Simulated scan of single mutants.
Amino acid sequence: MKKPIFMPLILAFIVLIVLVIIPNKWIESLIPKNRISEAATQLNPFMFQGKYVQGIMLEDPKYLPIYGSSELARLDRFHPSNYFQVANDGFTPFLVGRGGSESLIHFLNFSEHLGELKGKKIVFVLSPQWFNPNGADESHFVPNYSSLQGYDFAFNNTLNPEVKKKAIKRLLTYSSVKDDPMLSTLYKSEISNNPWTKEEATLVRPFALAYRSLLEKKDLYYTFAGGTKRGRDISPTLRHKTWHQLELEAEQYGAVRATNNHFYIVNSQYNNIKSFLPSLKNKNIHGSYGKSKEYGDFQLVLDVLKQAGAKPLFISVPVNGHYYDYTGFPKKGRTDYYHRIKKQIEAEGFQVADFSGHEYDPYFMKDTIHIGWKGWVYTDRAIKQFYNGNDKKLVRLN
């Protein structure tokens, strides 16, 4: 006898309804107790785009959140997550970010956890490449954007209204926001004086709240499922070594991994670019990171952290000077960025570990743009000083 063709659809619908009506507390009770510690180095995008894991992490004093982008995934032995596990300095780094996680993405994330950031020490790694003239483009913003954080932002009534309006105007330039009819209606009502726009938002609000509830439940299910463990290089030999000894070891470590080029780029990365390297010669003679929309986006990050009462340490990462000189990227276009970003951070009373003086330092960078072995040693030192309370004035490391 032929099975009813609609039976699988009916069963799927019933399962969906069950999953939706299960109380959140029940799902939370099923989440393994070690899920937060597992997530600390998994760099799981579902965690970045959710709020459950980060909310618990921020309330636990043993975690030191480190926010950034693609450099966080380079888990060599000098990386903060690996070094501090060996050094056992009383805290566990918790990594938040991946490639394309630029200022606006972090701003939405921080806005999500405004109350939990009060008094919390955090580390924020800056990449000069974010500060191209147009700032974050669609290809970087869209994959990292969180609908849950976007909807929570719409209903956030604690954030400074002026900061919120500036952010909304910027967010509405991206397709994942402006093409969402409910969310864009809510956002537009915040920045418009049009009575009809306000009325539309009133009509949409109950449906938006219901959708946000579904997104929260989805976050819990993803948390229950967990992420994938990443490979790490944890070296117990680093324990009890002085910073000078660590610096020398990092140089030696890099020296045997960057042998086939004069840029001090790790061999595997150089092999990926050497075939088209001649085409990059003097390609960026008009380049500059001194002027960018990203500065406005970054100011939103500073504003929300200041309102939250967070205690951030910013890591100002240099570029690979040898490579940037080869591509013709002007020195001024780099130094303008270093000076401007440092001034912008310090104007808000925050601390910055400025490593801009290490552009030409061998093995400070791992490739053309990412901090590497020796760079991580300097970062580890700055983090340790900051965490131990020396956050009023960091030892000059540049």
Rank of each mutant, 00 (worst) to 15 (best):
L114E: 08
K217R: 11
S213P: 00
D219V: 03
I265Y: 00
L277Y: 15
L30K: 15
L277T: 11
N271F: 03
V377Y: 05
P143Y: 06
P128E: 08
Y211H: 12
R340K: 15
D76L: 07
N272L: 14
V15L: 13
V317Q: 07
N284Y: 15
L203F: 14
D89W: 12
N260V: 06
L30E: 13
G309A: 09
L313M: 05
G99P: 05
M182D: 15
F350E: 10
R205C: 04
F94W: 01
Y174L: 08
H339Q: 08
M365R: 02
R334Y: 01
A250M: 12
K165R: 15
K169I: 06
I369M: 09
I21Y: 14
T335P: 04
E138F: 10
T92I: 14
Q344V: 07
H79R: 00
A225G: 00
P45M: 13
S356F: 10
G357N: 09
I14G: 10
L114F: 08
F84I: 09
Q149Y: 03
I31H: 13
L108K: 09
I285C: 02
R340S: 08
T335C: 12
R74C: 10
L58P: 09
S176L: 11
T242Q: 06
N194R: 08
K384E: 01
L186Q: 09
F46L: 13
S279K: 14
L148N: 01
T185R: 07
L305W: 12
S213Q: 07
K374W: 00
K178P: 03
S292Q: 06
H106T: 07
E38T: 03
G231D: 07
F48Y: 14
F124H: 09
N261W: 00
P45A: 11
E247I: 15
L117Q: 02
P278R: 14
K218E: 14
I122W: 00
V395F: 05
T185S: 10
K331G: 11
V142K: 12
Y145P: 06
L9N: 09
V96Q: 01
A201R: 00
R334G: 01
P318K: 03
K164T: 08
E199A: 15
Y52Q: 08
F355P: 01
L280I: 05
Y270S: 09
